[in-house]
């Protein structure tokens, strides 16, 4: 349960939605403040980090590395769905690709093939909802569902993310 508390405060969906709303506000104000896009980079990289942390909770249970806990699995899956609902457009302004600025692996294909990018993001949402529907139903279901989420991650990274430097 440690994963779901921050300094003793349990993170609920309400808190998460508030945080997302605040983050979205932050993006809006930063957009005209500077053009190194550091706020957008932090926001979009942060959302992927939130995804990874919660996938880690589910993946640990799927692999049997950590004990299955229905409540923790549900909270992690709910968080994935919450991330999938963050609107993406404000975090991906034109010119924030890896050819234009430092600190990102976002390839220009995100803008050149934006429909493909957004459809792959939508696929992540579909996979997140599937895991949300079954996360509390036992450890056995997690493996295949993780595979579906992982497939969505890879499908997008295949085209749109540059290798690490």
């Amino acid at each position: 349960m440690v994963e779901n508390t921050f300094q003793g405060v349990t993170i609920t969906m309400k808190h998460l939605k508030l945080a997302i709303a605040l983050a979205a506000l932050g993006c809006g104000t930063a957009a005209y403040a500077q053009d190194d896009f550091s706020a957008q980079l932090k926001a979009r990289q942060g959302q992927f980090r939130i995804m990874a942390i919660n996938l880690g909770i589910l993946g640990g249970m799927a692999q049997g590395k950590t004990e299955y806990n229905a409540e923790a699995a549900q909270a992690a899956a709910d968080t994935l769905v919450a991330v999938s609902m963050i609107q993406q457009a404000p975090m991906w302004p034109a010119g924030s690709d890896d050819m234009s600025i430092e600190g990102t692996r976002a390839q220009t294909t995100i803008w050149e093939q934006n429909d493909d990018f957004l459809s792959k993001w939508a696929d992540f949402g579909t996979a997140a909802k599937a895991i949300q529907a079954s996360a509390a139903g036992g450890q056995e279901a997690l493996g295949p569902l993780m595979g579906q989420v992982g497939g969505a991650c890879k499908a997008c990274h295949d085209t749109h993310r540059a290798p690490a430097n």
Binding site: A52, Q63, K154, R161, A162
Partner: peptide
Amino acid sequence: STEIAYYLETGFTPDFDSAGGHMVAVIA
């Protein structure tokens, strides 16, 4: 070893980042 095998199966690194580029085809 189990982490390497899991990566080859799912594409997830130990900190649950995911594979990209041509490695996606390799994992498939």
